[in-house]
Design a protein around this nucleic acid. Sequence first.
DNA 1: CGAAAATTTGACATGACTCAACTGGAGTGG
DNA 2: CCACTCCAGTTGAGTCATGTCAAATTTTCG
Lengths: 196, 196
Amino acid sequence: MAEISKAPLLDHLKEFIAIDPTEEETILECHEAKFYPRKSLLLQKGIISRHEFYILKGCLRVYMIDMSGTEHTLSLNIENWWCGDLKSFINETPASYYIQALEDTQVLQISLANWNKLLEKVPKMEKRFRLSFQNALIAQNDRIIQNISMTAEERYLQYLEKYPHILQRVAQKHVASYLGMTPEFFSILRRKMVGR
Amino acid sequence: MAEISKAPLLDHLKEFIAIDPTEEETILECHEAKFYPRKSLLLQKGIISRHEFYILKGCLRVYMIDMSGTEHTLSLNIENWWCGDLKSFINETPASYYIQALEDTQVLQISLANWNKLLEKVPKMEKRFRLSFQNALIAQNDRIIQNISMTAEERYLQYLEKYPHILQRVAQKHVASYLGMTPEFFSILRRKMVGR
DNA sequence: CGAAAATTTGACATGACTCAACTGGAGTGG
DNA sequence: CCACTCCAGTTGAGTCATGTCAAATTTTCG
């Protein structure tokens, strides 16, 4: 198999901070390329999450299963996004979530040991993580507002505008779950939309 | 009026990072003590948020108003919590939210200029913010899961367990709004609980 | 004490879910 | 390349959770 290019990760990081060549090397050393075939699980509830994942190609879904056995999708992630169970990874506690590859997926994954090494050797990564978490936090606020203030139809319409490319790639039932509604109701909403 | 003690802020920061005396001074210099009376607005939608607030005493409510005029509470914050419209503050863009004092409230507030100065003069604050945002992000994940996977009754019960002290302090309608339900329905849930 | 706001209550409306049946397309093995 | 299976998506009937609106009651605060 051809060598996997790790370049997209560096490009991604450079959106946050400047990186010099020595640092580039350290960063790349700390990330391991790995392939996960479609439908495989990268993480299961109860297992300690040993990696955070940067997606080079493919699609990952983070979800939990409630007491009645229903799955709830926390996030749908594609190329150039980070994905993981942060709480489990950082604290080395059993995961609350499952992570599943919805497509054949190529990632760069980092272990906690390497994460700490990286923070130590490249102190400016501290800033990168700060900015990254800061942005994620701002995005999460929007989602919470949506959940508490919008109807299912409004959430659907907003998703349609914001992430049409994801809607095309993943099964509807996963998007329905992400938006907090049943696949049946999602289907009804779609039908209604055709009319307009 | 007696001098306001800024000590709780330092105690709070020390939960994240070690701080030496010189740094203590810089940190305190960057934070301004300010009093907001009950019912006053610390921030309004459309205004650029010039401060983040650390609450020494009192209670702040962050909320938005939807197109139909209904208020939706994003967070209810008490002593020793940070509060603000992060997006507006960082990007110097018009705020999406309102922030209102639900009680007479004493805060330490920091401006963007001082925030940047602090990051520059006390680099380890970068770590403190990273950790702080990291924790907030983990907490937000839990809230999103709750919103998409739990019924109103389950959300109410969980709140009762997690934040009984807040429930005692603020109007029910604000908690109802935080939990994404109407005050009328919240009231019905309470009545049902008395039975068990 | 009195006015205003918060909470409760009830009747009614509706958004969203459940369950079951049906349809169609994608993947798989022969 | 076809036949088969399986799963995603659709549809419909019936139900339940939650919202709306308006009025009565209680609490809070000036």
